[in-house]
């Protein structure tokens, strides 16, 4: 996960790829959430083009990263006007503070889950006989 401030905007870039979210949304939605011991969802991530948001209950990514983070899920927002550099950093830290732990946990698990789904799908596709 990487946080960037440019001008009056901030961006949260995850190591999770948008393609991985889309794949898991379809084949294994449970892998996109963190659950408590009773199985209730406490936090989840999703992707909705152009409609990103960070809330205490989850992160909806709204865009794709470019360059070195090509394809990675991002959320971009605007900072209140007139903040100094330190104030801007504190504002962003306040915004993402509650989600960092959950997001880092999901970043570890989501990629593995997406790889498992891809492998399973490839196996399934390879096993189809065309008569």
């Amino acid at each position: 996960m990487k946080l960037t401030i440019t001008g009056d905007a901030y961006a949260l870039t995850s190591t999770i790829k948008v393609d991985e979210i889309e794949l898991l949304k379809k084949y294994n939605p449970d892998a996109l959430s963190v659950k408590d011991k009773d199985g209730n969802v406490k936090f989840k991530v999703s992707y909705s083009e152009g409609k990103g948001s960070i809330t205490p209950y989850g992160v909806t990514f709204g865009g794709k990263g470019r360059g070195e983070s090509d394809g990675c899920a991002t959320v971009t927002g605007t900072l209140p006007a007139g903040l100094s550099t330190d104030e801007a950093k504190k504002y962003v830290a306040e915004l993402v503070g509650g989600v960092v732990a959950y997001l880092e946990q999901l970043e570890k698990d989501v990629t593995k889950a997406a790889e498992a789904v891809s492998t399973q799908r490839k196996k399934l596709i390879d096993g189809i006989t065309v008569a």
Binding site: S33, N40, V41, K42, F43, K44, S46, S48, S53, T55, Y57, G58, V59, T60
Partner: peptide, 19 residues
């Protein structure tokens, strides 16, 4: 994301959902 508190005559449950 939003937190939806789903209540029926017999159950109470929290669901995290998208808008």
């Amino acid at each position: 994301m939003i937190k939806v508190l789903v209540k029926t005559n017999t159950t109470r449950q929290e669901v995290i959902a998208e808008v």
